[in-house]
């Protein structure tokens, strides 16, 4: 079978990483296996035999210990496919008896979304100052466009934070149920 690279575009928000995983799994079932990541939204697939793979995303922005981090995933049978904006992409073929999750308890899932939230919160004050600052003499069009973009980003960040907080609280609720 001839192997070729297929480029596809699909957009997933940061709070829908599970949908992205499900989509990548569906692509593999159709014989398109993720080979690398391009600009945000662009995915490169290698065509081949359909296969049953699990795709999992972690959010990790610590770089100093990265080799050790990746070695641990590799030892556990996870193939590292790439990193995009802090998101690490992993894949593993489904086999009976294998652990098919990278996070095996709720606490560590909560920590993953907390890392993501902290990362997003860092940009919040910058955008806020940009949007709310007194324009003074700066009434030039470029400045106004910048403010408008800043306002849109601020809105998007707010939605992202609310969605991620919702996710964390749902995980915490199921944790409370487990402990009851």
């Amino acid at each position: 079978m001839e192997r070729k690279i297929v480029r596809k575009f699909n957009w997933f928000w940061a709070w829908n990483d599970d949908r992205e995983e499900a989509w990548l799994e569906e692509m593999s079932r159709q014989g398109l296996h993720l080979s690398s990541l391009g600009l945000p939204g662009f995915y490169y697939f290698e065509s081949g035999e359909p296969g049953d793979y699990a795709y999992r995303l972690d959010f990790n922005t610590t770089h100093k210990d990265r080799a050790n981090y990746l070695a641990l995933f590799q030892d556990a049978g996870w193939e590292h496919l790439g990193n995009l904006g802090g998101w690490e992409y992993f894949r593993k073929q489904r086999k009976p008896g294998e652990v098919m999750e990278i996070f095996t308890d709720n606490e560590s899932k909560i920590k993953k979304y907390t890392r993501l939230m902290v990362y997003l919160v860092i940009f919040f004050p910058v955008l806020f100052i940009l949007v709310t600052s007194d324009p003074g003499e700066h009434t030039r069009t470029i400045y106004q466009i910048g403010r408008l973009l800043g306002a849109l980003l601020l809105l998007l960040y707010s939605v992202a934070l609310i969605k991620i907080l919702g996710r964390i609280s749902r995980l915490k609720k199921s944790l409370a149920l487990e402990n009851d």
């Binding site: 999992r56 972690d58 981090y69 641990l72 995933f73 030892d75 556990a76 996870w78 652990v99 999750e101 990278i102 996070f103 095996t104 308890d105 606490e107 560590s108 920590k111 993953k112």
Partner: peptide, 11 residues
Amino acid sequence: VRLGPGTLYGA
């Protein structure tokens, strides 16, 4: 108890 690498790394 079976640990995923993400959980173990964080622990």
